[in-house]
């Protein structure tokens, strides 16, 4: 099984402490006759920042949807801290400590910025329905704490001055920031970012990369990132897994991936790949002489 996946075998990927935070083995998802994801393996250790890249339709977002329980896998296993995730409901998976953002931003559009973040605290709100409908002292206290926490969170993302704004009225870049803020408010250990830089200009991308570094340090996160823009992936990811047609075609560090034939082929097509290889040979020839 492992022989079909080139480059490193998964056993080499386990981090220093020897235990993976997320371990996916032989994950397969079929939609009718189409194998959207086929025999996908990945292993992520605590504190890593890993990129998942691949051309359009490679099955990257399907992998996210399988991890978060939106789709149920046809085969395989997803282990998060020794808990099998397949078969769990999406909200149960979130409560275990996995949060995500979406490719096409999914905020709560007509609610305020503050409420968007406060909803993420619902599972930790800690007061009952009875407290809620009577606005008991317990409610007052818990609600105040929750609101302060949400506001502090917004301040981390420089959104605290916009707490009363309706989410859909925010500029695009701020909507992205809000979505990340909301995901972090669910207090995850593993954060899944689905194309966070989509639709951003180079300047916004640069500040996004800083932001990802910052939250990773501050909240002690492990991050799995899907990205299209090579610049982002190459800039921040420590390890990269490349998918095409639902299968892993390469794994490695950004440098290794950049020069991997199969990856170039997948992205550019065979002819262009051959051309690029020729160019490279020529360059090394020139450099050698």
């Amino acid at each position: 099984m492992l022989s079909t996946t080139p480059a490193h075998s998964p056993t080499q990927e386990i981090g220093q402490d020897g235990r993976a935070l997320l371990e996916i083995r032989g994950l397969t998802k079929e939609f009718g006759g189409l194998k959207a994801v086929n025999n996908f393996d990945i292993s992520i250790s605590r504190g890593e920042l890993i990129g998942l890249i691949g051309p359009n339709g490679a099955g990257k977002t399907t992998v996210f949807n399988l991890i978060t329980g939106i789709y149920v896998a046809t085969q395989g296993s997803i282990k998060y801290k020794d808990t099998e995730l397949i078969g769990l409901q999406p909200h149960e998976i979130t409560r275990l400590g996995i949060a995500r953002t979406f490719q096409n931003i999914r905020l709560f559009p007509t609610l305020t910025v503050l409420d968007n973040v406060r909803i993420a605290y619902h599972t930790h709100a800690g007061y009952s329905m009875f407290d809620a409908i009577t606005h008991s002292p317990h409610y007052q206290k818990a609600e105040k704490e929750l609101t302060e926490k949400a506001q502090e969170f917004l301040s981390v993302f420089n959104l605290h001055t916009r707490q009363g704004e309706i989410a859909k009225n925010l500029p695009y870049g701020e909507q992205r920031r809000l979505e990340i803020a909301r995901a972090l408010a669910a207090s995850p250990e593993l954060l899944l970012l689905d194309e966070p830089a989509a639709g951003m200009n180079p300047k916004e991308v640069a500040s996004l990369m800083d932001l990802i570094h910052f939250i990773r340090e501050r909240f002690n996160l492990t991050i799995l990132l899907i990205e299209h823009q090579m610049r982002v992936v190459m800039g921040i990811c420590e390890r990269i897994t490349v998918m095409d047609f639902g299968e892993v075609i390469a794994r490695g560090t950004p440098e290794e991936i950049q020069n991997n034939e199969k990856v170039i082929e997948a992205y550019l097509g065979r002819g262009a790949a051959a051309l690029s290889q020729k160019l490279q040979e020529k360059r090394s020839h020139v450099a050698g002489s």
Binding site: Q89, R100, F108, P109, I119
Partner: peptide
């Protein structure tokens, strides 16, 4: 209250609500 916001979040976006841990 938080319970009300959870109810409203379902109207706003079911998938996002699930991703926020809301049943």
């Amino acid at each position: 209250s938080s319970h009300g916001r959870a109810i409203i979040s379902v109207r706003e976006d079911e998938i996002a609500a699930k991703a926020m841990g809301i049943d």
